[in-house]
């Protein structure tokens, strides 16, 4: 019984970790630019494809493929910002939102045509799918890795934001981008860094997601990112800590529902979890950690 419970807790934290990483990437871009980035999921997919191709085509070690996929994700996020998003920088929320939506749609079609409309399997090394024996309890290696990766990434990011100059500039930009620019901080540098970091986070979550499922398909990133959006709103739009909190809460909620709902209600678990969150937001429109700005 305790073993099942412990396993479920790990599942919840592992899934929540993926949402938290995705949500943090989204929140980073939103707080600096006010942009809701729909193409975030496609960065995740791109990272997944990189992993598949590098390990299948070149037969390189799995870990190397994983690391390269992070680089590709971070680089492509920065590239998309440069090519597609810069012309709408500073435009209205709607304009930016629809631009990212259009880019996301184009990437879907490109993946479908030039890679494959079907899922491509990834040979996940056996050590990833094994289980660990921990004091008589058997827990999945992958879940443990997921949680570790999430924690390391989050603490690394906290350290970066807290102790580096660029990190300080980004935190300042998240508070008030106009003023930050007036302080002589290059807007491009802050924005490109925000996208690169958000891409890196998408790459990390892409790795965890693909390792869990064993395949990559063109629409892979879409649904988890939609849910991460909802997690971000739950945590409080514009709050980085809120995004992480919201991500973990969503993971816990989903795993709890999966474990506790009976057979006939299982198909509705997404509907139930999202309804609960929207219901909560209606009562608390600013989310958990959101702030309401002073009016002048």
């Amino acid at each position: 019984m305790t073993e099942i419970f412990a396993q479920q807790v790990l599942n919840a934290l592992a899934l929540g970790g993926v949402y938290a990483l995705l949500g943090l990437g989204l929140a980073m871009v939103f707080s600096v630019l006010g942009m809701i980035n729909f193409a975030h999921g496609e960065i995740m997919t791109l990272g997944g494809y990189t992993m598949v191709f590098i390990s299948a085509t070149f037969g390189w070690p799995f870990l190397l493929a994983v690391i390269l996929s992070f680089c590709v994700a971070a680089g492509s996020a920065a590239l998309i910002e440069r090519v597609a998003f810069r012309p709408v920088r500073g435009a209205s929320l709607t304009t930016m939102l629809l631009t990212t939506f259009a880019i996301s749609s184009i990437l879907h079609v490109l993946f479908q045509n030039f890679i494959s409309p079907r899922p491509i399997a990834l040979a996940v090394p056996s050590w990833l799918t094994s289980t660990l024996d921990l004091g008589g309890m058997r827990i999945g290696t992958l879940q443990s890795i997921s949680i570790t990766v999430t924690l390391v990434a989050l603490s690394g990011l906290v350290a970066f934001l807290r102790f580096s100059t660029l990190g300080l500039a980004m935190r300042a930009a998240a508070q008030d981008f106009t003023i930050t620019r007036l302080m002589g901080i290059s807007a491009n540098r802050v924005i490109v860094s925000a996208f690169a970091i958000s891409g890196l986070l998408a790459g990390l979550s892409g790795f965890l997601w693909v390792a869990q499922r064993g395949s990559v398909d063109p629409l892979m990133g879409f649904v988890p990112v939609l849910k991460a959006f909802i997690a971000v709103v739950l945590g409080g739009m514009g709050s980085l800590g809120g995004a992480v909190l919201g991500g973990f809460l969503l993971g816990i909620l989903e795993v709890t529902l999966r474990a506790s709902l009976n057979e006939s209600l299982l198909p509705f678990r997404d509907a139930i979890s999202l309804s609960l969150i929207i219901g909560f937001l209606v009562l608390r429109p600013n989310g958990l950690l959101g702030r309401s700005d002073a009016v002048r």
Binding site: F30, G34, I36, L93, I230, V233, A271, L274, I278, L281
Partner: peptide
């Protein structure tokens, strides 16, 4: 932004 994302939730 929150309202827009809530409508996204409605669709799902």
């Amino acid at each position: 932004a929150s309202a827009t994302i809530a409508t996204l939730g409605l669709l799902i």
